[in-house]
Deep mutational scan, measured.
Amino acid sequence: MSIQHFRVALIPFFAAFCLPVFAHPETLVKVKDAEDQLGARVGYIELDLNSGKILESFRPEERFPMMSTFKVLLCGAVLSRVDAGQEQLGRRIHYSQNDLVEYSPVTEKHLTDGMTVRELCSAAITMSDNTAANLLLTTIGGPKELTAFLHNMGDHVTRLDRWEPELNEAIPNDERDTTMPAAMATTLRKLLTGELLTLASRQQLIDWMEADKVAGPLLRSALPAGWFIADKSGAGERGSRGIIAALGPDGKPSRIVVIYTTGSQATMDERNRQIAEIGASLIKHW
């Protein structure tokens, strides 16, 4: 067993022997301040990774656009098919120029040779490549099948209805392509620590998230040296922004954090800054 596999296998073990965790309302004060600064709703939840206990939450059962955070769930569904012998990570998928959609920095470079399922998941999570996500959605049967996968996990809230990039439209009061912070946090925890996926697939999923290259201005910008984070960000229309993450000190994750916002007129930089400040408060009061 590799060191990384050992780390993920012992996530519940280490967490069980940690000192009790206590909620700190100071972080919620910052979440509410972010709402004021952005002029928009902000949803927040913080779960203990081992027990699933909610440590703090704000608007945990209000719907927010998922945006690209759905790509972690998508690759979880792909990995479940791999575990069941219905898919192979090494299978190569070929596609054409007509398949390319807006923001496809990886797939646009491989029109000639195609990409493997493993490479597509890596591109979808680490670079948020939209064509990679659409190609992977095709392998599982489309958005409705991802929703069905989530329902089978016990998540009857999260739903995907459309493809990239239309799913980022974020129309107010439109339930399409949305989740709730509580539902997303619980589902992410199941994917990373539950028995739904094999140990190898859980490790692969967290490795992809740990290698995320496009979430630097968010929670990662607030992390002290030595902290662990595996995350996936999302951005959408109407001032929408979000991030889902597993993080913790001492090089291992111990909490799940989900943050979503929508309806702001603020710039992307300002949305990023507010999420980073929430992260800084979380870490300060850990």
Results as ranks from 00 to 15, higher is better:
Leu196Arg: 12
Asn152Gln: 14
Leu137Ser: 14
Asn98His: 08
Trp286Phe: 08
Glu56Tyr: 05
Leu74Arg: 01
Ala133Phe: 02
Arg238Ser: 10
Pro224Ser: 12
Val78Ile: 15
Pro60Tyr: 10
Val31Asp: 00
Gly234Pro: 00
Ala133Asn: 00
Ser96Thr: 09
Tyr103Phe: 06
Gly52Gln: 14
His156Met: 11
Val31Gly: 01
Glu119Cys: 05
Thr27Phe: 04
Asn134Lys: 03
Asn168Tyr: 03
Thr261Pro: 03
Leu219Ile: 12
Leu49Met: 14
Arg238Trp: 10
Gly39His: 11
Ile229Phe: 04
Pro60Lys: 09
Ala183Trp: 13
Ile256Asp: 01
Pro165Cys: 07
Met209His: 00
Thr262Glu: 08
Leu38Gln: 11
Met209Asp: 00
Val258Gly: 09
Glu119Asn: 11
Gly52Trp: 05
Trp208Cys: 03
Ser264Leu: 05
Glu108Pro: 15
Thr186Asn: 15
Thr186Tyr: 13
Arg271Gly: 11
Phe58Trp: 14
Thr147Arg: 07
Val29Gly: 10
Ala77Arg: 06
Val106Lys: 14
Gln88Gly: 14
Lys252His: 07
Thr69Gly: 02
Glu46Gly: 06
Arg273Cys: 12
Gln265Leu: 10
Lys53Ile: 14
Leu197Phe: 14
Asp212Gln: 15
Trp286Ser: 00
Leu137Tyr: 09
Arg91Asn: 14
Glu87Lys: 03
Val117Asp: 02
Asp212Leu: 02
Ala123Phe: 03
Pro224Tyr: 04
Asn272His: 05
Asp269Met: 06
Ala84Lys: 14
Ile275Val: 13
Lys32Gln: 14
Ile278Lys: 02
Thr116Gln: 10
Lys252Ile: 13
Gly154Leu: 05
Pro249Ser: 14
Val258Trp: 00
Glu145Asp: 10
Pro143Asn: 05
Leu89Gly: 09
Glu87Thr: 14
Ala84Tyr: 11
Glu26Ile: 15
Ser96Lys: 09
Gln86Lys: 07
Asp231Thr: 04
Thr193Trp: 09
Ser254Pro: 09
Glu87Phe: 13
Glu35Ala: 14
Lys32Arg: 11
Gly248Glu: 02
Arg273Trp: 07
Tyr95Asn: 02
Thr116Leu: 12
Ile259Trp: 04
Met127Phe: 14
Asp207Trp: 14
Leu219Phe: 09
Leu188Ile: 15
His110Ile: 05
Cys121Tyr: 02
Pro25Thr: 12
Thr267Arg: 08
Gly43Trp: 01
Asn98Gly: 06
Ile45Asn: 03
Ile244Ala: 13
Pro105Ser: 09
Gly76Glu: 00
Glu119Ala: 12
Ile243Met: 15
Asp129Glu: 03
Thr69Phe: 02
Lys284Ser: 14
Lys213Trp: 05
Gly242His: 02
His285Val: 08
Gly85Phe: 09
Gln97Gly: 12
Lys213Pro: 04
Met209Tyr: 00
Gln86His: 14
Ser96Cys: 07
Ser264Lys: 14
Gly85Ser: 07
Gly234Ser: 13
Lys30Thr: 10
Ala185Met: 01
Thr116Arg: 12
Leu38Thr: 08
Gly279Ile: 05
Asp33Pro: 00
Glu46Cys: 06
Glu56Cys: 06
Ile171Cys: 15
Gly142Trp: 02
Arg238Leu: 12
Leu223Val: 15
Leu73Cys: 13
Arg255Asp: 00
His24Gln: 08
Asp155Leu: 01
Tyr44Trp: 04
Pro165Gly: 09
Leu219Cys: 03
Leu135Ser: 04
Asp83Ile: 03
Leu282Val: 08
Pro105Tyr: 06
Ala200His: 09
Thr139Trp: 14
Ala200Pro: 11
Ile244Gln: 00
Leu223Ala: 11
Met184Ala: 07
Thr126Asp: 09
Val82Phe: 10
Thr187Phe: 07
Ile283Gly: 05
Lys144His: 14
Leu191Thr: 06
Gln274Arg: 10
